[in-house]
Simulated assay, not measured.
Amino acid sequence: MRIAAIRFAGVNVTPKTNWSFVQVATEDRRTGTGECTLANHEAVLALEVARLDAALRGADARDRNALARLLPHAPGGLVRHAAISALEQALWDLAGQEAGVPIWRLLGGRLRDRVALYANINRGVAERVPEGFAAAARRAVADGFGAVKLAPFDPFVWEDAAAPDQRAAYARGIERIAAVREAVGPGIDVMVDCHWRFSAGGAAALVRDLARFDLFWLECPLAEANLGELRRIRAMANDRGMRLAGAETLAGLAGFAPVIAAGAYDVLMPDIKYCGGYEEMRRIAALAQVHGIEIAPHNPTGPICHAHTVHACATIPNLGRLEVQFGETPLFFGIAAGTVPAISGGAAPVPDRPGLGAALAEGIAAERPWIPIPSPWLDPRLG
């Protein structure tokens, strides 16, 4: 099963969102697909995939250990990690197709037939006022979700926190959380994503301000570089009934091991697009399990990442809920061929088709090519 070509495919799905993919074609006319979405980095992703294509044409696609080895110290950083992670996903897809079995079967079998989901409502909120968030949360609950997540603090960034408009942004964030909690009621779990917007002192104040909302978890209050402060914030959150979650952009077991050893999080969020793919995600989950830490993979992007992550989640013992985008775009299913696991009803069925069971629709990248995004979701200082 020799590699004939490795191609990048970028697809625009909203005025603020592109999704990016890697397709590995073999000489025996199979195509394996992985996802490498990394907002506002499509051009450099395409260059990195072209480099992989030049280096790996003619290689045996079954040699995953040699072809898709993730090195956390790689000079390309997260761009390199995303390309390698997508390559590894695509190679697993090819292996399943060749064997005639779903990927989870090659990983030793599934532990569950369905993977519990939570709804990330953030990008599905057009009117970013408290009622807009509340309405999105109600739609998710009506669709069967028992947990919702919002990212309520844009445009707050701690470096500017002394400015009056930033103080107002913080207050609006609290109002959005209050509206969602009231909208969904006490029986629904609510998570809050901070996207690393806070300093250590600001995160401590935030934990105190959020205690009244009975949150399930607080996510990414500050960067993983500050493990000592994260451990302190975790203790504060735990004392108030909240978990602390994060580590969505780390890569490889080597990247996660210090975070696990430091006791920084209750919940780790490896992303199959960045962490190195299946093998690294499962290694990370195994080490986390030894330390009593749950895994809730980061998964707010496209259908290929979602399908791969469902396969991986089927095999992870210490799994919590899997993230899924809710309400951002109907193209989640429109750009895909095959069977993409459901993103409604609060759980996704584990696929039974060979390989991944899903792929990009024929010609979709040419029909909807990626575009530069002039107004990204996140302040460039945050990621």
Rank of each mutant, 00 (worst) to 15 (best):
F8W: 02
R197S: 05
L150M: 05
V190I: 05
R2L: 04
T37I: 02
V180K: 12
P351M: 12
E159S: 11
P297N: 04
G144V: 02
R283C: 07
E88C: 11
D28P: 00
L67R: 02
M1V: 02
D266Y: 12
I371T: 14
R123F: 03
R69I: 01
T249G: 08
A204K: 14
G146I: 07
R114Y: 04
N120V: 04
A205L: 13
V44Y: 01
E294P: 11
A39F: 12
F216L: 13
F133I: 12
R51K: 01
R7Y: 00
L52K: 07
A262H: 10
D214P: 13
G124Q: 01
S199V: 04
D53M: 08
G10T: 03
A204G: 06
L111N: 07
E175C: 10
D93Q: 05
A307I: 10
V24T: 06
R62S: 06
L45R: 00
A39S: 15
M191C: 11
L206R: 09
I103P: 04
F21W: 05
R283L: 11
R231D: 13
R197C: 04
R29S: 02
A5W: 00
T31F: 01
A178I: 12
Y118I: 02
W92A: 05
M269A: 10
K16I: 08
I304A: 07
A5M: 00
P186Y: 12
R243N: 14
G132I: 01
A178W: 09
A135T: 04
P303A: 04
T301V: 09
T329Q: 08
V192G: 02
A314P: 01
G383C: 03
H81T: 08
A179Y: 04
R29H: 04
A257R: 15
R30P: 00
L227P: 11
T33N: 10
G292D: 15
H298Q: 10
R231P: 09
N18M: 05
H291T: 02
C220D: 03
R7V: 00
P102I: 06
G228V: 14
P152A: 08
P317K: 07
D209T: 12
R110N: 10
E175W: 12
E88F: 10
F332G: 06
E294V: 14
F198C: 08
A183N: 09
P270D: 09
A261M: 15
R114D: 06
L94F: 10
A59T: 05
G355Y: 07
L227S: 13
F156Q: 05
I177V: 15
Y265Q: 09
H298K: 07
E98R: 14
P376W: 02
A225I: 12
V310G: 08
A161G: 11
I188C: 08
E279N: 11
A86Y: 10
E98Q: 11
R7E: 00
A254G: 13
F8I: 03
A307L: 09
W19E: 00
P380R: 14
G355S: 10
L287R: 14
A251G: 13
L230F: 08
T14V: 10
D93I: 03
D239S: 15
V184W: 01
V180N: 08
G34T: 06
G201H: 05
V148Y: 00
L378N: 14
E362T: 15
F145E: 01
T309K: 02
V340L: 08
N238V: 15
V324H: 06
W377N: 05
G108V: 09
P152N: 12
N226V: 11
